[in-house]
Amino acid sequence: MTSLPQSTEKKLGLVIDLDTCVGCHACVISCKEWNTSNYGAPLSDMDAYGANPVGTFLNRVHTFEVKQDDKPAQVTHFPKSCLHCEDAPCVTVCPTGASYKRVEDGIVLVNENNCIGCGLCAWACPYGAREMDAAEGVMKKCTLCVDRIYNENIPQEDRVPSCVRTCPAGARHFGDFADPQSNVSILSAERAGMDMMPEQGTKPVNKYLPPRPKSDITSDITPALTAQSAETGGFLGWIDRTLEKL
C-alpha cells in the first residue's frame, strides 16, 4: 500500500561519482538491456527505426556545463535514475497501491499488475526518474535491480545492479546507506556526498560525489623550473656532474 513505511531495515542505493563519470552511457544501455527482459513489462522503443524514436529508459546520462565569470568552463556528466527517496512523493500519490517502498531495503518499486497508468507518480517525482511505457501503459522505473541483487541464479560477486557491474570507470557504487560502515556510507562521508534538490524534501537515498576542483579553474601554478646556473657551468656542467655520480 502506498503509505510509506515508518522506516526501512536497509537503505539500499547508489553513490554516483561525478568526478569520475566520463559520460559513456554504458550504464544506460546495460540497464535497458537487463530490464527489458526482466522485472515487469519490457522497455519498449516506439518508432525504433524511424523519424522519432522514443524508448523507455530507467537511467539516463545528462551533460552539463558549469562556468564562473572569466574562468574556463567545466563539463560534468550526470547519470540519473531513481534515488529511492525516503520520503518518496511518487509513492503517496499513487491511487492504486502499485507504487510502493519496500520495508526491508527501501527500494521503491511499481507493482505493474496494479498500475492503471495514471502517471501521477511521474508528476510527483522531482527528478524525472519514472517513465510511462508507451506500449504497455504501465509506469517503469529503476528497480535497483531487485531481481539481481538477491538472485541466487547469479554468482555472489555479480549480485549488484547491472549499471554498477558494467560501469567502466567505476563511477557507480551500490550498497546499504543504513550501515555506516558500508562502502557507500564511507565514500559519501569522505567525499561529501550530495543530495539532489534537497529543498524538495524527498530525502534521496542515492548520493552524488561532487567533481574535485580543477587546477586550470582554481588557477594553480607550479613554479617554473630554474635553469642550471652559469657559475656551475650551465647545462654542460650539469651533464659532467651527473655523469660523475653514475
Binding site: 559513456c24 554504458a26 544501455i29 537487463w34 555479480d158 547491472s162 557491474r165 567502466p168
Partner: peptide, 21 residues
C-alpha cells in the same frame, strides 16, 4: 543479455554502451 567477462584481460567484467547494445 550480454555482460562483460570478469576473467577477461581487456575489460575485466565491464562493458561499454556499444557492447551492451
Amino acid at each position: 543479455y550480454i555482460e562483460g567477462n570478469k576473467d577477461h584481460p581487456v575489460n575485466k567484467g565491464v562493458l561499454c554502451a556499444k557492447g551492451s547494445a
